[in-house]
Amino acid sequence: MDETGKELVLALYDYQEKSPREVTMKKGDILTLLNSTNKDWWKVEVKITVNGKTYERQGFVPAAYVKKL
């Protein structure tokens, strides 16, 4: 869990989004888990830094590609 009590997951593999509802992740990324009720796709939040500014983006990743921490 992070400092706000949200559950975290670890990306076990790289994943490139294939639709606007998904998010890209790299092996080793730590993501915030938002919803894991679907056994195949989990909703996560990723933080992306571009030119020194951090953005948060929500989307789905394959559940088999992440592990709860």
Rank of each mutant, 00 (worst) to 15 (best):
A64L: 11
V66K: 00
P20N: 10
L31V: 06
V9Q: 00
T54I: 12
L69A: 05
P62K: 03
E22C: 06
T24H: 04
T4Y: 15
G28C: 08
V23G: 02
Y13L: 09
K18R: 15
K39E: 09
V46A: 10
N35I: 06
V9D: 00
V23C: 07
T37C: 11
P62F: 02
I48W: 10
D40Y: 15
Q16I: 14
S36R: 07
T24P: 07
Y65F: 12
T54Q: 11
Y65K: 06
E3R: 05
S36K: 07
P62H: 02
L34C: 06
S36P: 06
P62S: 02
L10F: 08
D29T: 06
T24K: 04
V46M: 10
Y55T: 14
A11G: 03
V44D: 00
E3V: 09
P62D: 01
V50S: 10
G5P: 15
V44A: 01
K27Y: 04
P62W: 03
L33A: 02
I48L: 12
G52A: 06
V46C: 09
I30T: 05
Y65E: 02
E22G: 10
V61T: 01
G5L: 12
V66R: 00
R21G: 15
S19M: 07
D14V: 01
T54N: 10
T4G: 14
L69V: 12
L8N: 05
Y13H: 11
E45L: 12
L33V: 05
N35W: 06
Y55I: 15
L12H: 02
E22A: 04
T32V: 15
T24F: 03
K18A: 10
E22Q: 10
E3K: 08
K18S: 10
L69H: 05
L12N: 02
L10K: 07
V44K: 00
W42G: 00
E7A: 09
V50Q: 11
G5S: 13
V50M: 12
L12W: 03
D40C: 10
Y65M: 14
G59K: 01
N35A: 09
W41K: 02
G52C: 09
I30P: 01
K43E: 14
Y55H: 09
G5N: 12
E7C: 12
R21Y: 13
P20G: 09
K6L: 13
K68N: 06
E45W: 05
T4F: 15
G5M: 12
N35V: 07
T4L: 13
E7V: 15
L69E: 03
Y15P: 01
Y13F: 13
D40F: 14
T49W: 11
K39A: 12
V46T: 15
D14Q: 03
A63L: 01
T37W: 08
L12C: 07
G28D: 05
N35S: 13
I30Y: 05
V50Y: 10
E56G: 13
G59M: 04
F60C: 10
P20D: 13
S36I: 05
Y15A: 01
Y13Q: 14
V23A: 05
A63H: 03
L10R: 09
N51T: 06
L31T: 01
V50I: 14
M1Y: 09
T49G: 06
F60M: 09
G52W: 05
G52I: 03
P20M: 10
K39G: 09
K43P: 01
S19I: 04
K39M: 10
E56H: 15
S36G: 11
V9S: 02
K6N: 12
E3Y: 04
N38C: 08
Y65S: 09
E17P: 14
E45Y: 06
T24W: 03
N35Q: 10
E56A: 14
K6W: 09
K26A: 08
K6G: 09
K68M: 09
S36H: 10
L10T: 06
N35R: 06
S19L: 08
T37S: 13
L12T: 04
Q58Y: 07
V46W: 04
K26V: 09
T32R: 15
F60K: 02
R57I: 07
S19N: 13
L10E: 10
K26D: 03
G59H: 01
K18P: 04
K53G: 08
N51H: 11
I30C: 06
E3P: 11
L10C: 08
K43D: 04
D40P: 02
R21A: 12
Q58W: 07
T4V: 12
K26N: 07
V44E: 00
R21M: 12
W41E: 03
T54G: 08
K47P: 13
K53D: 13
T49L: 12
T54L: 14
K47L: 13
D29N: 05
V61S: 00
K43R: 10
E3T: 12
Y55N: 08
T32Q: 12
K68D: 04
K67A: 11
K43Y: 15
K43T: 07
K39D: 13
K67Q: 14
L69W: 07
E17C: 10
L34I: 15
N35M: 06
G52T: 07
V23K: 01
Y13C: 12
A64K: 14
Q16H: 13
G59L: 04
N51W: 07
V50P: 04
A11C: 10
N35T: 07
S36W: 07
E3S: 11
T37R: 08
L12I: 09
K26C: 09
V61I: 08
M1Q: 15
V23H: 02
L33G: 01
Q16L: 12
D29M: 09
I48A: 07
M25H: 00
V66F: 05
L10M: 14
Y15H: 03
E45H: 07
L8H: 10
V66P: 00
I30H: 04
G28R: 01
T4W: 11
L12E: 03
G28E: 02
D29F: 03
T49A: 09
D14A: 06
V23I: 15
K53V: 14
Y13P: 00
Y55P: 03
E22P: 04
L12A: 03
